[in-house]
Amino acid sequence: MRSIANPRLMLMILSAVFAFLYIPISVLFALSFNEGGLPTAWTGFSVKWYGALFRNSDIMGAALNTLVVAVISTALATILGTLLAVGVEIRRRKGRFLETIIFAPMIIPDIVLAIALLSFFSLLNVTLGLHTVILSHVVFNLAFVCSVVRSRLKTFDWSVVEASTDLGAPMVVTLWRVVLPVMMPAVIAGALLAFTLSLDEFIIAFFTAGAGRDSITLPMQIFAMIRFGVTPEINALAAIVMTLSVVILALSQRLNRGGLPGQ
């Protein structure tokens, strides 16, 4: 596109867009170290809000809940999603119906899935709690894992499976020594993606966690804090949460050079 682009205009566009994207985030980070905690005046550098954060038992409790949800739902989703990806890629006929089912969790609006699950659990008289959040998170997590692994398998040269057999390996050995190692980066990348999605997920958790205080997840806690009384601690919390997701996803991206779904 360079032949028709005006370089000065392009530079202006990029500067404006990046300013728009990064100023709000940077302000949060700066604020988390502001002694006074208010956006209007810089009163000096301090990490006291981070300290306050770790002493806040509500926040720490919510963080622990989130970790439990993310770890368990990621583990389940990774196994189910990987098997699904291999199954779908092996299959000869690609069913449109099947593709829709696999794709749906990624595009269905969160609010719809959230209320559907809430009604479903309530009508079946399932007590809501962390376990229902986990069950629900696996739904979209497995779809994302599946999509990452599939994109890897699409570029997979299946003739290595034959090569391994031709060289004398039984199928179990081929799976263990050839197929799994080739897939592994994508599986890990998918798991990391699922993990962050689960860490950050708010709406579905909000509807399926029930009313109890002990099943509040971190995003639910953040929502409540923003809505009902902002304390400066939230800046520190925001900075940590944001850094965590970005670091994990950058790692995932690196592992899976094929890119994340949607990219």
Binding site: D166, L167, A169
Partner: peptide, 20 residues
């Protein structure tokens, strides 16, 4: 006889080297 039990080897068109 299955391929892994034949004294025959194939060099694949794509080479099919194990990338790992």
């Amino acid at each position: 006889v299955p391929p892994n039990h034949r004294p025959v080897n194939l060099m694949f068109q794509s080479y099919a080297l194990f990338p790992n």
